Amino acid sequence: METIARFEVPEQAHLFRGWLGSRDIAATVLDEHVVQLFWHYSQAIGGVRVVVADEDAERAKTEFEAYRETLRRKPEEIPQAKVWPIVLVASLVFGFPLILFGRRPGR
């Protein structure tokens, strides 16, 4: 087993393990429970480790660089949908009859 990456918190390690799993590389997270119980020992023990089998080590190192590059990229901007005209028309079409013929008090 070879250590591919070290992280400060288990959540980051599990995200990277999921990244490797999606690329058919089996990985294991080690020392996560020690860091969760004794967070102040995280730096002393080297953080939370992600390890893979020796035969997958080179591919996993390449994927780690791709993972880090993906995290550095800025998020893509999602264009806003312009649905307000549809909502306005639907509100008028369905809401106006309810205002005119709605339930009257006392009936």
Rank of each mutant, 00 (worst) to 15 (best):
A5T: 01
K61D: 08
L30N: 05
V48S: 04
V50M: 08
G47T: 07
Q36R: 12
P10V: 06
V52Q: 02
R72H: 04
Q12H: 10
E76T: 13
L15F: 12
P85N: 01
L88Q: 05
K61M: 10
V48D: 01
K61R: 15
E77W: 10
P85M: 05
F38K: 14
V35A: 07
G46H: 05
L88Y: 05
Y67C: 03
I4S: 02
V9F: 10
R68E: 15
Q36M: 11
D24N: 12
G21W: 02
E55Y: 02
R6V: 12
F16Y: 01
I45Y: 05
F7W: 08
V50Q: 08
E65R: 06
V93K: 01
E65L: 15
E58I: 06
F7D: 05
R49C: 08
V89H: 04
G46V: 09
V50R: 03
G21I: 01
V89N: 00
L71P: 00
K82Q: 08
V51G: 01
E55H: 07
V93G: 03
F38Q: 12
F7K: 06
F16W: 00
E32P: 06
K61S: 06
A13E: 05
L37F: 14
A60T: 04
G18A: 07
T70A: 15
L30P: 00
V93C: 04
E58K: 09
A13K: 03
A27I: 04
W84M: 11
A57E: 09
S22Y: 11
Q12K: 08
E65I: 11
Q36W: 05
Q36I: 06
V35G: 00
V89Q: 02
A57H: 07
L92Q: 01
V50I: 04
L15I: 07
I45A: 10
A81G: 03
V93Y: 00
K74V: 11
E55M: 08
W19P: 03
R6M: 04
A60E: 02
D56F: 09
T28I: 13
E63V: 00
W84Q: 05
S22E: 14
E32Q: 09
H40S: 14
E8Y: 15
V83P: 06
E69C: 02
V87F: 15
I45T: 07
Q36A: 13
R6I: 03
F16N: 00
G21C: 02
L92N: 02
A26D: 14
T28K: 15
W19G: 02
P75D: 04
A44Y: 13
H33V: 10
T62Y: 01
G21P: 01
S22D: 11
V93L: 11
H14E: 13
V48I: 06
Q80Y: 10
P10M: 14
V29K: 00
Q80I: 08
A26Q: 14
K74C: 09
V9Y: 13
I4N: 05
D24V: 06
